[in-house]
Design a protein around this nucleic acid. Structure first.
Lengths: 211, 211
DNA sequence: GTCGCAAGCAAGTACCTACTTGCTTGCATG
DNA sequence: CATGCAAGCAAGTAGGTACTTGCTTGCGAC
């Protein structure tokens, strides 16, 4: 019973925070949105700061689905699916992420927690690409680190800013992940079949030189 | 004399807004930062909203330097210089842009004004690439539109979020523009010399099909 | 029935917010 | 010297903010 009201408050807090940010998310607004008396809010969470902290924590733990990539099939297709999933994740949390990032200097802990998921997502993509490179499926002199960083920026930008600056995202929403991956694939020189060992050797040497 | 005080207020407003956003930028804080009596602030600008609007307007008009690309020399080098300039521009306004974007739903007009410059910058890059394509310097089947969008996202992400999530930007700050452009160049297949006319024909056909 | 507990309700505290008013000060021009 | 004007200063208004207190209401367990 207390649990149900707690979740109702958390949900309301998320909605209000997403719209108005920390300062704008007044306890009155949250209580009204949750259809709960304002005092219950303080009784269950102690303070506004603790409530919003709990809300952010519950949000990152609730949807931790930037899953790792699976091997086996077509790499481009696998990456496209992965991007679509990640993009959907980012899009559903877009408002909260945007607010949290903007207030990162005032409340740094919140920002860290918010980007933990995407960070590990990028890492998993990096590992996946490393495996492809070992199999001789990507160019030796390709800067996969930068390419991954750019792809992640593209996903972030699309999820966070498409509805604000639609002109900056000419691809239709549903086609975006495929297009991003296509461009990414060209940048890293992904192949369907491996190259002979000679050029694979050169590739590894070229990798070591960087950084 | 009035002009000097006006600029002092605008500068203070910019600094305070960059730190605390619209709601957090109280008239007291701005007045204190400008070392000016709070009433002067109302006498010169009318209201807090008008003051911050004027501040944003002066900021976008003051530094409108996402310049257009020049032809002639090495395209990759030209694009790297252009990216470095744009990145510097974005970085100096990073805090304000971040806040403005986060508050876009509450104050949409401000967000539009803020991203006007970068928008036209992307457009100029698109035109530049179109010229390169006509000269047969980029691949016919390259999706330049998506590539430009991704490059812009990379620049935006770097400028806005590097200091918050440094892990997401593995390239050192000074090397970043060159790395982004290198990856971009691979994605669109930029060449130093043009291809024979046959494949140039195919390229144009491929372009028309999209969008 | 009654006990305890979780929630609602009304009111209040102390402080911050944008914005106003009336008056004083200093300075520059006639 | 006198006029005007731009800025400072002190005080006040009306409302919002987080958070507290004291009391009432309903409901389930003993």
């Amino acid at each position: 019973m207390s649990e149900e009201i707690r979740n109702r408050i958390l949900g309301a807090a998320a909605r209000v925070y997403a719209q108005y940010g920390f300062r704008g998310a007044t306890t009155r607004l949250i209580a009204a949105e949750a259809d709960v008396n304002e005092v219950t809010l303080f009784r269950t969470f102690g303070s506004k700061a603790e409530l919003l902290q709990a809300m952010l924590a519950s949000h990152v733990s609730a949807t931790s689905i930037p899953v790792i990539l699976d091997d086996g099939g077509d790499p481009e297709r696998a990456m496209t699916d992965w991007c679509a999933t990640l993009l959907e994740y980012l899009r559903t949390h877009a408002h909260i992420i945007r607010k949290t990032m903007a207030e990162a200097e005032e409340r740094p802990d919140a920002a860290c927690a918010s980007c933990e998921g995407p960070n590990s997502a990028a890492e998993s993509l990096m590992l996946y690409l490393e495996r492809l490179r070992q199999n001789g499926l990507v160019d030796g002199d390709a800067d996969t680190e930068t390419a991954v960083s750019m792809l992640m920026s593209a996903l972030f930008g699309d999820a966070l800013y498409r509805e604000i600056i639609p002109d900056a995202f000419p691809q239709p929403v549903e086609a975006a992940p495929a297009k991003y991956v296509q461009t990414f694939v060209r940048a890293v020189g992904l192949r369907a079949t491996a190259l002979p060992a000679r050029s694979r050797q050169r590739r590894v040497a070229g990798t070591r030189r960087r950084r």
